[in-house]
């Protein structure tokens, strides 16, 4: 009996130690939104890819999910990162401000005001409204009659390594990758890659890294990083009749990713 008890205590100590060892190499991400969305599928795709990277480096990544209504019932302190796929900018801002100790990714909202407001812990992987409009305008400078619309992604995109990402997303979900899926995938991919490089899941260090040192491959041919507004700089695609007609910045009109969207904060937000 005593031996049994000792063994149990021993196992407990061992277990605790093992837990504490693995904790340093573990990162928890929280998806806030509905799971029947392409945002969630994109986030899961990003996680699968992060787990493969983790296998080679001895790192572990977990992705939990919660609906916006149940957010109050969870302990947010165990998460380094939250991905928000919600459609209301006011709710979004409230959640971001409540979870100010962790890093927030906006994967769904295109509102320019969210970029101008520059909330310190918020990053946007989905392009803003003005980015999309600017891309369309650039195209219309060359083809005034065009009705092309700008998107972050398209399932027929094959250039660079887009073909590879489209193929693996289709293979694992059975669906075509759309803008929301790409934006959630990109958020998970860039943040998990960054923690592996930092060798830390400390949100403060990670926040600093994302703001100053990121060089992300979003599989659109350009290296990507964040503006001071928290917006991910990225090329866009112009789509007409469900076909990709060109990429933006549109060649001959501009060659700068900063030709699209808002570049700076409305008021310097020191917070």
């Amino acid at each position: 009996m005593i031996i049994n008890k000792l063994l149990k205590i021993f196992a407990l100590i061992l277990g605790l130690q093992m837990h504490s060892i693995s904790w340093a190499n573990e990162m928890n991400l929280l998806f806030i939104g509905a799971v029947n969305t392409s945002s969630f599928l994109g986030a899961k795709q990003g996680l699968t890819e992060a787990e493969l990277m983790g296998e080679f480096l001895g790192l572990h990544y977990n992705l939990d999910n919660v609906s916006i209504n149940d957010l109050n019932n969870i302990d947010a302190s165990k998460y380094t990162v939250a991905l928000l796929a919600i459609n209301d900018p006011i709710t979004f801002t409230n959640v971001a401000k409540t979870l100010k100790q962790i890093i927030i990714f906006n994967t769904a909202l295109t509102n320019d005001s969210l970029r101008e407001n520059c909330i310190n812990n918020v990053f946007h992987t989905i392009p803003s409204e003005k980015m999309l409009q600017d891309a369309e305008q650039q195209y219309r400078q060359k083809y005034p009659e065009s009705i092309a619309i700008a998107q972050a992604w398209h399932h027929d995109f094959v250039k660079f390594a887009a073909r590879d990402l489209n193929k693996r997303y289709k293979a694992s979900t059975g669906k075509n990758m759309d803008d929301a899926a790409w934006a959630a995938w990109a958020a998970v991919k860039l943040v998990t890659d960054s923690t592996a490089r930092l060798n830390s899941t400390d949100p403060k260090k990670l926040l600093d890294y994302l703001k100053t040192s990121l060089l992300f491959d979003g599989q659109k041919g350009s290296d990507m990083n964040f503006r001071e507004t928290g917006q991910l700089r990225q090329p866009l695609l112009l789509i007409e009749d469900s076909k990709i007609v060109t990429e933006a910045p549109v060649r001959g009109v501009s060659n700068s990713l900063d030709s699209m969207g808002i570049l700076s904060c409305k008021t310097k937000n020191a917070q």
Partner: peptide, 19 residues
């Protein structure tokens, strides 16, 4: 290319030694 790694493989047993 998309896991951003150099995998160093030992030819003797075709296993990865370092990532």
């Amino acid at each position: 290319e998309s896991t951003n790694m150099l995998h160093i493989i030992r030819a003797a047993d075709n296993t990865i030694e370092n990532n």
